[in-house]
Amino acid sequence: MLESLEFIVRILPVLFQGLLITIQLTLGGIFLAIVMSFAAGLGKLSKFFPLRWLCIAYIEVFRGTSALVQLFWFYYVLPFLGMDITAFQAGVIVLGLNAGSYGAEVVRGAIQSVPKGQYEAAIALNFTPLQRLWRIIIPQAVVSMIPPMGTIFIELLKNTALAALVTLGELTFVARQIRDDTLRTTEVFGTILIIYFAVALCITAVMRTGEWWFSRGLDRGGIR
């Protein structure tokens, strides 16, 4: 037991290197996912049908195929089409696009759940369509977006491990190497499972704080 602990402490610095890359992947992916969620979620509500159609195609393709297949496609196929891409870039892009396709539906649903009266009041006060969205509708919709977005971000974190399969030296990849060198599976994978769990808890905590922040003053019961 004590010997195991010593072993874990010894490998922690190496695991930490991998964790740094995992965190970069996660943050980069989350950033792209937020951008794509809003772009495609709002685009799907557009009256301009080519834009709407494009957004629906993006959402369906990325929700309908496997994240790992998407990663392999970006990493192995794109160079054939003349685009060179590193494993890290492929990771961030696929994580972001994949999570964004789920997030788009969250954004769309939240925007549509804002009561119609809010749009009407915004028209009566002569706000422009962009002001209506940005000042009135989105700030109210954000509160109901946050919990499902938290779930999506945790799925994104879990998917960062897939980047190990395209040889990116993130946490799972590093752990796999240590395991192959030492054959101490339980300690190595047990440790990184706990690390992933801890990062997931951090994401949950941040999302809770965000939810509290955005819902100040809002009475979710009697919202008008």
Binding site: P115, E120, A121, I136, Q140, G217, L218, R224
Partner: peptide, 12 residues
């Protein structure tokens, strides 16, 4: 400008 039956104040 218009005033509504259900107020439609901006809750945020």
């Amino acid at each position: 400008c218009m005033v509504f039956q259900h107020f439609n104040l901006f809750p945020h």
